[in-house]
Simulated scan of single mutants.
Amino acid sequence: MPRYKALPAELDPCARQLVARLRQLKDHGELTMRHLAAKTGYSAKSWERYLAGTSLPPGEAVEALARITGADPVALLALHEIAADTWDSRRTGPIAQPQPQPQPTAPSAAPAALTPPPSPTTPTTGPAPGRLPHIALTTGVVALTVALSATVLLMLRLDEDIAPAAVAAAPTTAEASPRPSYTCRIARLDGHWSAGVNDGRNTEIYYGDTGADVAEAQCLLRRAGISPGGIDGMFGPLTLRAVKTFQQREGLVADGMLGPRSWKALRG
C-alpha cells in the first residue's frame, strides 16, 4: 500500500472523506498514477493533486475512477457535491475583521469650558443593547440551516443509490438507444475459434471497454468453460475476473488485459 502524505488541516470533513475514499479505490484497484491517467483522461500530475487534497477533482474524474474500479458512483458523486460546496470557503480561512476607527477628538485649541457636559437623558454612542446576541443567533441559525441542507442532500443521494431505478439507470447521460444485443455463434474457422461477433479482430481491450470486441471475448471465455457473466459487451468486474482466471490457466501474465497472446490462446 502506498504511503500518502497527511491531508491539509484546513480541508472540510466532507472533502477529507472524499479524498480518503478516492485513495481507497485507487489502492484497491492496484492502480498507478499512469494507469489513472490512461483510463480516466486526467493527467498523472492532476491525480497527484487530487489524492493529496490540494485540488478538488472534477465530478467526471470521480465518476471515471468509480467506473474503472467497479464502485457505485452515485454515493461518491453525492459526497463530491457536498465537498465542492464547502471546498473554497474552508480553504480561504477566516475573514479579517475591520479595525475600529478612532473617534475624532476636539481641537486642542478649543477651551474645555466650551464643551457642554452630556445630558443625563442623551443616549451615548455604542452598540445597541442586545445587538451582539442577535448577530450571534442569526449566525447560528444560518450555520444550522446549511448543515441540515447538506444532510438532506446526502440522504437523497443515498436513497437514489438504493432505489432500483437508480441502479438500472446510467450514472451520467440517459441512453439514447437500447443497448446492442450479441449472439455467440461459435465456429472453427481456419483453425481458430470465432464467435462471429467482431469479424475475427484481436483488438487489445481492458477493464472499462465496451463493444463488439468485448462481446467476442466473452463468448470465447464461455466456450473455454469460464463464465464472464452476461454477453453484454461490457468489460466489467465479472469479465475481468474471467480473463484473469483464463490467463492463469494458460500460463500467461494475469493482468486482466486481453492482448495478442491472450487472444491467441482464446482462439486456440
Rank of each mutant, 00 (worst) to 15 (best):
M1H: 09
Y4M: 07
A6T: 12
L7W: 02
P8T: 01
P8H: 06
A9Y: 10
E10P: 02
E10W: 08
L11R: 02
L11E: 02
C14P: 00
C14W: 08
L22M: 14
H28M: 11
E30R: 13
E30D: 11
T32Y: 12
M33G: 13
K39Q: 14
K39F: 04
G41K: 02
K45A: 15
W47L: 04
L51W: 06
T54V: 10
T54S: 14
T54H: 13
T54G: 07
S55L: 14
G59R: 12
G59M: 09
E60Y: 05
A61W: 11
A64I: 04
A64K: 01
G70W: 05
A71W: 04
D72K: 08
P73L: 06
A75E: 09
A78E: 05
A78T: 01
L79Q: 03
E81L: 11
E81I: 00
T86E: 08
T86H: 10
W87D: 01
D88V: 02
R90D: 11
P100W: 01
P100F: 04
P102K: 07
P102F: 03
Q103L: 15
S108F: 08
A110P: 00
A112L: 04
T115F: 15
S119W: 13
T122Q: 14
P127M: 13
A128I: 12
P129V: 04
G130K: 00
L132H: 08
I135P: 00
A136R: 06
T139G: 07
L144Q: 15
T145F: 12
S149A: 15
S149M: 12
T151Y: 08
T151G: 05
T151Q: 13
V152T: 00
M155A: 12
M155Y: 07
R157W: 10
E160P: 00
I162H: 12
I162M: 09
V167Q: 15
V167M: 12
P171H: 06
T173R: 14
E175L: 13
A176S: 11
S177W: 06
I186S: 05
D190I: 00
D190M: 12
H192F: 11
A195N: 05
G196F: 14
N198C: 10
G200M: 05
R201Y: 13
T203M: 10
I205E: 01
Y207A: 08
G208N: 07
G208V: 03
T210L: 06
G211S: 10
G211L: 03
D213T: 06
V214A: 03
E216A: 14
L220Y: 07
G225R: 06
P228I: 01
G229T: 09
G230H: 06
G230D: 13
I231C: 13
G236W: 02
L238E: 13
L240R: 14
R241N: 11
A242V: 00
A242P: 00
K244V: 03
T245P: 01
F246D: 01
R249S: 09
R249D: 06
G251T: 09
G251P: 02
L252I: 04
V253T: 13
D255W: 09
G256N: 03
L258S: 03
L258A: 04
G259Y: 13
G259W: 14
K264M: 05
K264F: 11
L266K: 03
L266S: 03
